[in-house]
């Protein structure tokens, strides 16, 4: 869309598109949405947001009536919500916007049901067990529903489960004191790899660009934290995280430059390089040689960013031609 805006504005500057025609040109080119696209957007927004709000309202209502409601009523309410949501999904079909929204609401309500089970029966289950059970419970719906938002929810729940596991067992000290961080990197890098495999297998839900960008950003954030930890952490196991960061970068380059081109994912990798390089250079060079050092660090950071941007612009142009 921004490419179309730039083209129309270039043609306006060149005199090919009259000033009065610019708004029409922006709609005709697809840069600005027309009525049909607006309708799809409003439909997605209102049905999606409406169903999520209803699911969350149910959670609040249960919490409010917590003490007053008998156990039977609590479970009946939550389970009825799940049944209604699944029925709505089957009625409208999981491929429709309404059906997909209903399935997402059912997945969220499942988490509420598991929390209710844990609190009502005092099973002694830990937080990580709740999240792990939630992930397992919604996995069949995620596989069958074939909706990108469900995969996003599953990824978030898996991340929470793994971090809660480390918090419970105090295993953050595992793997040289960085077990939790290693898990964060591996889970999210694995998710990005699996997403790309799903796309290669031409599975419809993995063609959603917005979801790929969220997964790539999550993976990039985890890898960047690992890279930063490798620089600032003085423990002997820290450099291994630096190697993990480098391997992640190599994977990004291989998957999104050599196999197919996705400039956004490559930009996430470049952003990670800029941040980690800035920290590395700052740590080792900042105070090395008077006023020259900060300038040198700044110039190197700009050089890395600018060089990377030039490469990515060229990659984008090659991909478009």
């Amino acid at each position: 869309m921004s490419e179309e805006i730039d083209l129309v504005m270039q043609w306006n500057a060149a005199g090919a598109v009259a000033r009065d025609d610019v708004p029409r040109a922006l709609r005709a080119s697809g840069a600005h949405p027309d009525g049909a696209r607006w309708l799809r957007f409003v439909e997605w927004l209102t049905l999606g947001a409406g169903s999520v709000l209803l699911a969350v309202a149910l959670v609040f209502f249960i919490a409010y009536n917590w003490h007053a409601m008998p156990n039977v009523a609590r479970f009946a309410l939550v389970e009825a919500a799940i049944v209604v949501a699944v029925a709505a999904c089957l009625w409208r079909g999981p491929d429709s916007t309404a059906g997909a929204a209903a399935l997402c609401a059912a997945a969220i309500a499942t988490g509420a049901l598991l929390a209710l089970v844990g609190q009502t029966y005092q099973t002694g289950a830990d937080t990580y067990e709740l999240f792990a059970a939630w992930a397992l419970a919604i996995l069949p719906w995620t596989l069958l529903g074939r909706q990108a938002p469900l995969w996003m929810l599953l990824l978030a729940v898996v991340n929470l489960a793994s971090q809660a596991w480390f918090a419970r067992w105090g295993m953050a000290s595992a793997v040289g004191g960085q077990g939790a961080l290693w898990t964060l990197v591996l889970v999210n890098a694995g998710a990005l790899a699996l997403w790309e495999i799903g796309r290669r297998l031409d599975l419809r839900e993995f063609h959603a660009d917005w979801a790929l960008r969220i997964v790539a950003a999550a993976s990039g954030l985890a890898a960047t934290i690992a890279g930063i930890d490798a620089i600032v952490d003085s423990r002997t196991a820290a450099p291994a995280l630096g190697i993990a960061w480098l391997l992640w970068l190599a994977g990004i380059w291989y998957g999104f430059r050599m196999r197919r081109v996705d400039v956004f994912v490559l930009a996430v990798g470049l952003g990670s390089v800029v941040v980690v390089a800035a920290l590395f250079l700052g740590k080792h060079l900042f105070s090395a040689a008077g006023f020259v050092s900060p300038l040198l660090v700044g110039a190197l950071v700009i050089g890395i960013a600018a060089g990377g941007i030039v490469v990515l612009k060229r990659v984008a142009q090659e991909a478009h031609s």
Partner: peptide, 8 residues
């Protein structure tokens, strides 16, 4: 939520 779904 109900208003949103109704509007949509």
């Amino acid at each position: 939520g109900i208003v949103l779904m109704g509007v949509g």
